[in-house]
Design a protein around this nucleic acid. Structure first.
Lengths: 162, 162
DNA sequence: GCCTGTGTTGTTATAACATTACATTACCTA
DNA sequence: TAGGTAATGTAATGTTATAACAACACAGGC
């Protein structure tokens, strides 16, 4: 079973292109699915893609205001709901924050690696660990609906910076 | 390596004794460690043990008020900080809520099974899954500090209740 | 063209979760 | 029993998130 290429955002990469390709993929996906990537939604996704970092809803809202795209909390929460619901972004429960998804495709189920120092967030496939989790749950008679794995620690860059 | 017995709170059990033994263990542990299980802290732990459920800080606070033990948020948050810090309770990040720990011992590292229907929370050992998580993180050069696994779904009782 | 339904956005208000800061009290111990 | 440390009381505020409803935008049928 071929895994998709696993973009390690902790490695040096051409961020400008990674960001614009993220937007391009999103637009294509929305067109294909009949989803509307409106200006607010597109801008929120762009803001998230710009940093690879976990951003709070109110941080995002502040940037939207600068662009005169909505100024009240529901604006950003609705956009985030759309992005998360369609796989373009994820919520990081530990931080009450949001990050863009690196591989917006419905099927993937990631675990998250959150750098405590710089707040950068990487995704890596949860499988096959997810199946182990399901097995452990089944041992207690628990029927799994969704799994959340969030790991905190230090990213390679911040380790090097000592 | 003998695992500790894994109390499955989803199974029928003598809850009154499970609750009082929880308090007894906590008192013994505090005595041994020179920790002060003050009235507020003890009552918060008791409230958590009473339900096996995830309770929000303000739910707990409401019950404290009934007992005339503090009425302002810092009271409950300080008690929770003590309980979580010393392994008597856990925070469930997904719910912004708290639950009593079933095996208050420093070494254990649990994953959580949260019933979406009744909010009951069970713990089960994270190992050996934790080591798999560490390996996946190491593949990206990430140094793990802490792991969080929270699974939502349906507990056996709620499955049966259809 | 224009009506109508559905989806999106604007706006106000408020709910829910959490912390800061400082005053006061309790407890230990020397 | 004086003095230090830990815990609690209290007011104020900060942060995260949603409810409710009005206004607008766009697509499809007439």
């Amino acid at each position: 079973m071929p895994q998709p290429p696993d973009p390690n955002i902790f490695q040096k990469h051409n961020h400008r292109s990674c960001r614009s390709s993220g937007m391009k993929e999103a637009r294509a996906f929305c067109k294909a699915q009949g989803l509307r990537l409106t200006p607010v939604r597109a801008r929120v996704l762009e803001i998230l893609l710009e940093s690879h970092k976990a951003l709070g809803a109110y941080d995002i809202l502040a940037r939207l205001k600068e662009d005169n795209l909505g100024s009240q909390p529901p604006v950003v929460y609705r956009a985030l709901e759309f992005l998360v619901g369609n796989g373009f972004a994820h919520k990081l429960e530990r931080l009450n924050a949001f990050a863009a998804c690196c591989q917006p495709d419905a099927a993937h189920e990631p675990m998250f690696l959150i750098c405590q120092n710089c707040r950068k967030v990487a995704e890596t496939p949860l499988q096959p660990i997810g199946r182990e989790i399901d097995r452990a749950a089944a041992d207690l008679g628990f029927a799994v609906v969704s799994r959340m794995v969030e790991v905190t620690g230090t990213c390679p860059t911040c380790q090097a910076g000592t």
